[in-house]
Amino acid sequence: MIVFVRFNSSHGFPVEVDSDTSIFQLKEVVAKRQGVPADQLRVIFAGKELRNDWTVQNCDLDQQSIVHIVQRPWRKGQEMNATGGDDPRNAAGGCEREPQSLTRVDLSSSVLPGDSVGLAVILHTDSRKDSPPAGSPAGRSIYNSFYVYCKGPCQRVQPGKLRVQCSTCRQATLTLTQGPSCWDDVLIPNRMSGECQSPHCPGTSAEFFFKCGAHPTSDKETSVALHLIATNSRNITCITCTDVRSPVLVFQCNSRHVICLDCFHLYCVTRLNDRQFVHDPQLGYSLPCVAGCPNSLIKELHHFRILGEEQYNRYQQYGAEECVLQMGGVLCPRPGCGAGLLPEPDQRKVTCEGGNGLGCGFAFCRECKEAYHEGECSAVFEASGTTTQAYRVDERAAEQARWEAASKETIKKTTKPCPRCHVPVEKNGGCMHMKCPQPQCRLEWCWNCGCEWNRVCMGDHWFDV
Rank of each mutant, 00 (worst) to 15 (best):
M458I: 15
L187C: 06
V456H: 15
G375V: 04
S233K: 11
S136R: 13
F277N: 01
N190G: 14
E452F: 15
C368Y: 02
T386W: 12
P73C: 06
Q178F: 06
A401C: 08
E300K: 05
R392T: 10
V17K: 00
A405D: 13
M192N: 03
P294V: 11
L102S: 10
T222V: 07
S167M: 08
G430K: 15
G160Y: 02
D115Y: 05
H279R: 12
V350Q: 04
P14H: 04
S145D: 00
V29D: 05
E98W: 08
S181K: 11
D346W: 07
F24S: 11
R170W: 05
D60P: 05
A172Y: 08
T168E: 11
A206D: 00
Q282N: 14
Q40F: 05
A92L: 14
T231W: 06
L123Y: 14
Y267R: 01
Q316E: 11
R6L: 06
G84T: 12
D87N: 08
G85H: 13
V30H: 00
L283N: 13
P216W: 06
T387M: 13
R234Q: 10
V248T: 03
A339C: 08
D39K: 05
C289Q: 00
L226H: 02
Q165W: 07
T204L: 06
E96K: 08
L61G: 02
L174C: 05
V244S: 05
S205K: 14
V425K: 06
C260L: 00
T21Y: 06
L119Y: 13
H302D: 15
S255L: 09
A120T: 10
G118E: 12
R42F: 03
Q440K: 15
C260D: 00
I2M: 12
I259Q: 09
G194S: 06
L174Y: 08
Q282D: 12
S198W: 06
N313I: 09
S110I: 06
D280Y: 09
G93E: 14
S19M: 10
V157K: 02
G152F: 13
H124F: 04
W462A: 15
L443Y: 08
L41M: 06
F264S: 01
F304W: 02
K412H: 11
S22Q: 11
W74K: 10
M80R: 09
P417Y: 11
V121F: 12
W183L: 02
Q317F: 06
S181D: 10
F210E: 00
Y391R: 05
D106Q: 09
G385C: 07
L249P: 01
S296P: 01
P113F: 07
N295A: 07
T173P: 11
N356I: 12
R75Y: 12
F304L: 05
C323H: 15
Q347K: 13
H302E: 15
T21F: 06
H422E: 08
C449I: 01
Y285T: 04
A225L: 08
G12V: 05
F277A: 00
P88C: 09
A320H: 11
E207P: 00
V111L: 09
V148M: 02
T175W: 07
T173S: 08
V250F: 02
P417I: 07
G319R: 08
R156F: 06
W447C: 05
G12L: 04
E444T: 11
Y285H: 05
G336D: 07
E96C: 09
Y147V: 02
D86F: 11
H303M: 06
H373F: 02
Y312F: 13
R392D: 07
A401H: 04
T125P: 14
G160V: 00
L261T: 06
R163C: 15
A225R: 02
L174V: 12
E376N: 12
L301A: 09
S384T: 12
G139Y: 11
N235T: 04
S109G: 14
S19W: 06
W183P: 01
Q165V: 15
P73F: 05
G450E: 02
S10R: 04
V350H: 03
I411R: 10
R334K: 10
T388C: 09
T387E: 12
E409R: 09
C268V: 09
F209R: 11
G336A: 07
Q158H: 05
N8G: 04
F362N: 06
T387K: 14
V380H: 10
D243W: 08
A214S: 09
C253A: 01
A92W: 14
V244F: 04
R392C: 10
T237R: 14
P73N: 09
K349A: 07
P288R: 06
C59H: 02
D464P: 01
L342N: 10
T222S: 09
T125V: 06
H265W: 11
R97T: 13
K413V: 15
G94E: 14
I298M: 06
A390P: 14
P159F: 08
L287M: 02
F251Y: 04
W183E: 00
W462G: 15
A390C: 12
R97L: 12
D115M: 05
N235F: 06
Q438H: 05
N356C: 08
R33K: 10
R455M: 15
L297P: 01
Q276W: 04
M434W: 00
K369D: 05
D243N: 15
G459T: 15
Q326A: 12
E367K: 13
E395N: 11
D86E: 13
H373Y: 02
K412Q: 10
E207N: 07
T168H: 08
L249A: 02
V324C: 12
G118Q: 10
Q165Y: 09
R442M: 06
G308P: 12
H257Y: 01
T103A: 13
K369S: 07
P189K: 09
V56Q: 01
A383W: 09
K220I: 09
C293A: 00
E195A: 12
R396W: 08
R51M: 14
G355N: 14
G160P: 01
E321Y: 04
R140K: 12
T204I: 07
A82W: 14
R334F: 06
G194K: 01
A383R: 13
L325Q: 05
C154R: 01
C421K: 00
E98V: 10
K413G: 13
Q347N: 11
K427R: 14
V29Y: 14
E300R: 04
G329Y: 04
Y312W: 14
R75I: 13
K220P: 10
D130V: 10
A31N: 01
P247C: 04
F362Y: 10
T177H: 13
W447D: 05
E98S: 11
Q400H: 14
G194T: 03
R396G: 10
F146K: 00
F13R: 02
H279C: 08
A363C: 12
S116I: 04
C238V: 01
I142T: 11
T204M: 07
S141H: 13
P153W: 05
F209Y: 13
Q155H: 13
Y267T: 03
K220V: 12
S246P: 01
A383D: 10
M327P: 03
R156T: 15
V248L: 05
I239E: 00
R6W: 03
L61T: 02
H433V: 04
K299A: 07
A91W: 09
C238D: 01
D62W: 05
G85T: 13
G450H: 07
A405P: 13
C196F: 00
M434E: 04
R271P: 00
C431L: 09
C166W: 01
N254C: 07
P189Y: 04
W54R: 07
C337Y: 02
D115E: 14
S65V: 03
S127C: 08
V330R: 04
T55V: 06
H124L: 05
L107W: 10
E321D: 08
C212R: 00
Q400I: 14
E310V: 07
L41R: 00
R396A: 11
C166Q: 00
A82T: 12
Q34N: 14
P153S: 12
H422K: 06
L272Q: 02
N90H: 12
V36K: 03
V290N: 03
I69L: 04
G135E: 14
E322F: 03
S116Y: 06
C238H: 01
P419N: 03
Q155F: 07
G47A: 02
V244L: 06
V278W: 07
E409P: 09
R455E: 15
P189G: 06
C289T: 02
V29T: 11
E300H: 07
W445H: 05
K427H: 10
P180S: 00
S10W: 09
G139D: 14
P202Y: 09
Q71N: 06
W462S: 15
T240L: 11
P159H: 08
L272G: 00
E98M: 09
Y285D: 02
C253I: 01
R402I: 10
C457F: 01
Y391A: 06
N235K: 13
V117A: 13
V330F: 06
A398I: 13
